[in-house]
Amino acid sequence: MSLISCDNITKIYQTGEMKVKALKNISLEISESQFISFIGPSGSGKTTLLNLFGCLDKPTEGLLKVIDTDISKLNYIERAKFRGKHLGFIFQNFNLIPVLTVYENIEYPLVMVKSLPKKEREEKVLGLLDAVGMLDQKDKMISQISGGQKQRAAIARALTTDPKIVLADEPTANLDHESAYKVMSLMKKLSKEVGTTFIFATHDPKIVKEVDIVYTIEDGFLTKREDKSENGRQSNV
C-alpha cells in the first residue's frame, strides 16, 4: 500500500515580487515500512518536500496524497489533527519542551493529541524509553541530558502515537559521530520493529549508508532514486 503519493507536485514560494520554485514536478510513491532518505545540496528542496509530506505546507500544484488523504483539501485544524494521528517528527534541534522532563516530553503527544488514559500512557512511554535506552534518564530535565540523548528522546516522542510515517529533517546534524551512529541504528531498529516508515532529509553519509531508498533532489527536481534493498536498483527519475 502506498503511504505517500506525489503526482507532479510543484511548490512555489512568493518572496515579495519574486517567485521561487522550490519543487518542480515531483512524482513518487512511498510504501509502508520503508527507510528512506532525500539527499541533495542545501536549498535543493529536501526540507520543502518533507514539510509537504508532514502536512505542514501544501503544494502549489499537483496532487499529494498522504495516507490516502489529499492534504490540499485539509484546513489548518484538520491538518493539525491529521499530523497528530498519523505523523511523527524529529527535528534537527530536537525541539523538546524544556520545561518538561524526558518522560513528560515523550508522554506529551499522548496527553495533548491522543488523550490516552494515564495507565496506557505510562505503559507506552516506559516501553519507548526502554527501547531508546533512556529509562534511567526519564526524570531528568531536557537541559540535563546530552545531544545524543535528546535526539533519542525526540525519536521516542515521534513514535509515541504509533505514527505511520516519521519525518526527520537532518536528525544527526547536531550530533557527534558516535551519537549519530547510535541514533541511526536505533531508528533503523525501531523502523523494523514497529513497521513505521522513516523519511529523512539529510546531507549525512551515515544516514545514506543505512537507508533502503535514497532519493536525490537537485534544484527542486527529483533526479535520482537508488534502491539499496536486495531487489532494488538504481534509476534516474
Partner: peptide
C-alpha cells in the same frame, strides 16, 4: 516561536 512550531507540528490544536 520554535517551540510553538514543534507543538503545532506534533498535532497540538491551536485551542490548546
Amino acid at each position: 516561536t520554535k517551540e510553538i512550531g514543534s507543538l503545532s507540528a506534533m498535532g497540538t490544536l491551536p485551542s490548546k
